[in-house]
């Protein structure tokens, strides 16, 4: 997959922000970030069976003083809801980057229920929520999220809009 410049810029940002662990459930929108994390020998890449594992994993990493990042699709937010009580109770910083589905030119109706509820769910769970609509804002927004989470011991979510990510190609 050809890497667009905003994805390279996001990876540079997470490196310069001190992120040393990247956890993810495989996702097309995050594929460049995932591949870069696997290739980078200074980053622990952790493939999860469910996004909620990543919430606890990131809290554990912070107990050990390590900065981390959790990548998921909007459907994954719903899998995490009760586990979000852990960073809230322990005030461990958490940064998640969410690729949105079900909000723009969506082909699969099953993505719509959770995609429509993603942002409100995160706000109910006490997240600061940043949305990215334009590629040139992505790296700066991710940097701001990391600074806020680790500066203030908060949970911060960056939502990458489906319009920016582009239509999923269903026919191969």
């Amino acid at each position: 997959m050809a890497e667009s410049s905003w994805q390279a810029a996001v990876f540079d940002t997470i490196k310069s922000s001190g992120i040393e662990l990247v956890a993810y459930v495989p996702d097309a929108g995050h594929s460049a970030l995932i591949e870069n994390s696997i290739r980078d020998l200074d980053i622990e890449d952790v493939v999860l069976t469910s996004e909620e594992e990543g919430v606890a994993l990131c809290s554990g990493a912070w107990l050990g003083g390590m900065r981390s990042l959790l990548l998921m699709q909007s459907s994954g937010v719903g899998n995490c809801v009760n586990m979000f009580s852990l960073p809230r109770m322990a005030r461990t910083p958490l940064v998640i980057i969410v690729t949105m589905r079900g909000e723009y030119a969506e082909f699969n109706p099953w993505q719509v229920p959770m995609g429509s509820a993603t942002e409100q769910t995160l706000r109910l769970c006490d997240f600061q929520v940043y949305r990215v609509e334009r590629p040139e804002e992505a790296a700066e927004t991710v940097q701001a999220a990391i600074e806020m989470a680790y500066g203030s011991d908060l949970a911060v979510a960056v939502l990458l809009s489906q319009k920016m990510l582009g239509r999923k190609k269903w026919v191969k």
Binding site: E52, E53, A56, G60, A61, G64, G65, M66, S85
Partner: peptide
């Protein structure tokens, strides 16, 4: 000791994150 009173299902993941962050421990 780090005690969980909730976050059911998260203990092993929490331990994994800690183990990866602190390989000396």
């Amino acid at each position: 000791n780090f005690y969980l009173w909730g976050a059911m299902g998260g203990a092993v993941s929490l331990g994994l994150g800690l183990a990866l962050a602190r390989k000396d421990l």
